[in-house]
């Protein structure tokens, strides 16, 4: 059993929701990312999503765009991120790590090289934003061969028949995009989300997590009961881009707040 599956099973047994934290690898530098990963876990994050910086992050709002730009100015690469995960695994053998990014950087490394190195270094899943189901054959096959989970996105616009098709191909967990928009937007509508997630739950046995538009305990508590976990991105990336001396402090406060909200019943 992989780390992702184990983590969600353990949480389900405890009747707890998963807190998934997204930061950009190399933002503001590789050592800060490594520090932040361990700190996030310590304060209550269950799954880490590491953004892979791209020059043209089409689905991101201003916060995460800036995160990508900061990381690129530090010359981060997918290869360097794979090494970073290896370093993370020296101390943390348990927390799932998912790489999230755009097709072109993964293809540049090559799906075979990527998948095998990722597996060896302790990556658990991959989520490629601009790789919809129809465009993913080769990449998915290579990832599967290595036992990496290919995380799939479902959007508010995804039709029911498409949801079925996508869920058939998904593994790890299913990521529901809570709103029409880019990361960091805040127009989340819990009623709409509930309707869609209920439908989703009927189609898949995989854990369903909700992302986009969740930035603190308050927004997390509005949707937490609808699904198996929530993803927080822009709010954490803002902290990583803030005053370097205070990253630890602010990250710690933020995650405690989120964690508390998720535990409340």
């Amino acid at each position: 059993m992989g780390r992702i599956e184990t983590t969600f099973l353990d949480l389900a047994e405890l009747k707890q929701k998963a807190l998934i934290g997204y930061i950009v690898s190399g933002d503001p530098n590789v050592s800060s990312t490594l520090m932040a990963m361990h700190l996030m876990v310590e304060e209550g994050v269950h799954v880490i999503e590491l953004g892979i910086a791209f020059s043209d992050p089409m689905a991101e709002g201003p916060s995460i765009q800036q995160g990508h730009e900061r990381a690129l100015s530090e010359k981060i690469s997918l290869k360097a991120t794979l090494k970073l995960v290896k370093s993370f695994r020296e101390k943390d053998k348990k927390t799932p790590v998912v790489l999230m990014g755009y097709m072109n950087t993964f293809e540049a490394l090559g799906s075979e090289v990527f998948s095998s190195t990722a597996k060896d270094n302790g990556v658990d899943g991959v989520l490629i934003v601009d790789m919809p189901l129809e465009a993913s054959d080769e990449f998915t096959e290579e990832s599967r061969k290595q036992g990496l989970d290919v995380i799939r996105l479902i959007a508010p616009t995804t039709t029911e028949s498409r949801i079925k098709k996508i869920c058939k191909q998904a593994s790890g967990y299913v990521y529901y995009i809570s709103l029409k928009g880019i990361t960091g937007a805040d127009s989340i509508n819990p009623k709409e989300v509930e309707k869609k997630v209920l439908k989703l739950k009927k189609v898949t046995d995989l854990p369903v997590v909700i992302g986009f538009g969740i930035k603190d305990g308050k927004s997390a508590s509005k949707v937490k009961d609808l699904a198996d976990g929530v993803v927080v991105g822009s709010a954490l990336v803002d902290i990583m881009g803030g005053n370097k001396e205070e990253i630890e402090k602010h990250l710690s406060i933020k995650i405690k707040d989120l964690s508390k909200a998720l535990h409340k019943t």
Binding site: M58, M103, V129, P132, A155, P156, T157, T158, R162, I166
Partner: peptide, 12 residues
């Protein structure tokens, strides 16, 4: 060619 976009835009 093809369609390499985020899921939200696929149906559109």
């Amino acid at each position: 060619g093809g369609v390499y976009v985020a899921e939200t835009l696929v149906p559109a």
